[in-house]
Computed example of a mutant assay.
Amino acid sequence: MATRIVTLPGDGIGPEILAPAVDLLKRFVPDVTIEEHVFGGASIDAHGTALTDDTLAACRAADGVLLAAVGGPKWDTTDASKPRPEQGLLGLRKGMGLYANLRPVRPLPALYDASPLRREIIDGTDLLVVRELTGGIYFGEKTRTETTASDLCAYSAEEIERIARSAFEAARTKVTSVDKANVLETSRLWRQVVVDLHQREFSHIPLEHVLVDNAAMQLVSNPTSFDVIVTENLFGDILSDEAAMLTGSIGMLPSASLGAGGPGLFEPVHGSAPDIAGQGIANPLAMFLSTALLLRHGLNLESEATSLESAVDKALDQGLRTRDLGGTASTAEATEAVLAALG
């Protein structure tokens, strides 16, 4: 039975980086069937909504979903009655039951000089941010009047325990649980549930608790101290983007969003970069690395995933640099370099 992957090119540079990623995927999975759907701003233009019921149904029935990028100034609005591309992403995560977002951060020696941090600070960094995806302030009740607004941040013990379990299962040396328990009631519940799960099932794995403001400082002053960071939706969104800069460019960071047994969603962390869309100069490497995460977590093809990641590393070692990394390589040239490294 053929492997079925739904692709969502989205907006901006999305179609430009997704096309070569699909070509790479076909090298590793020759029998793959690709089903493309409009999503985000493109879907708003075509259907009036960022995520149609048909697209969601297709994603839920697939073996995995590759998403490129969504959003752009064309659809920016403060009018709550108008659709926004990002609503499609939230709806997709909720509709597919994707509660764990995994963002590996591993700066490559070839790119140490591209990072704003000194080489000796980032050398040896190899961490994973595990972000809760379906709860918290992004999904809480929202109110708005002319002069006031509110966003409810709510979590259940069940939501916290399942994301904490994902973190403990991924840990190699320790888990750092990030919260704001000195101020927020949701964080106090978070800490209690994480501690209880640790004591019941994962006491062999060291656990530490770090307040989110301290975690933000430690990420740029001592990133090698982290193994797995687990945190709630809003904090995870911010900290994982901060961690991306350890690699020298947010254009290098992939992510995987996973649930309880269904298909996963694999996407770069970066945005749609509308300022360079259509110029053929976007960095496709985070899209390629997201494809590797699809191979690993979505299709259980570990050796193939490692081969693709190694090819990206090798291409960079041999001098590949896109414009965001201080070089001149185009999207096509970056793709050719990775293909050459694959052999």
Rank of each mutant, 00 (worst) to 15 (best):
L197C: 04
P73V: 15
T3G: 00
A332V: 06
L219I: 09
T224A: 05
S310I: 00
T331I: 04
F266C: 11
T145Q: 01
E35F: 01
D227C: 05
L102R: 04
T134V: 09
A332Y: 00
R172D: 08
G319M: 07
I238C: 05
K180C: 08
V38P: 08
A244I: 11
P83F: 14
T306S: 15
R118Y: 05
L108C: 02
L152T: 14
R191W: 12
M217C: 06
P223D: 02
T176K: 01
G48M: 06
A282P: 12
R4W: 03
L265F: 05
P30Y: 00
H297S: 04
V193G: 04
G251F: 13
V228I: 14
L234K: 02
G64P: 01
L289I: 10
G10W: 07
A154W: 00
D151G: 03
E132P: 06
A50R: 01
V194N: 03
F39D: 02
L239I: 13
D241Y: 09
I163G: 05
A62H: 07
T173Y: 09
A282Q: 10
M252E: 12
V29S: 01
T186E: 12
R118P: 09
P284T: 08
M96F: 04
P104M: 01
E120P: 02
K180F: 07
D79Q: 09
R118F: 04
D54M: 04
G140R: 08
S225G: 12
S115C: 13
T125S: 07
G95A: 11
V269C: 13
G91C: 11
V6T: 06
A100C: 11
A149N: 04
G327S: 10
V129L: 12
C59M: 12
E336N: 13
S203V: 08
A341T: 12
L234M: 15
A215N: 09
A149W: 12
P15T: 05
D196P: 03
D151Y: 02
F39E: 02
A215S: 07
V183A: 15
A260M: 06
T247I: 08
C153S: 15
T145I: 01
R119P: 10
G95M: 08
G259K: 03
I229W: 06
V228A: 05
V65C: 11
A100P: 02
V212I: 12
G71Q: 09
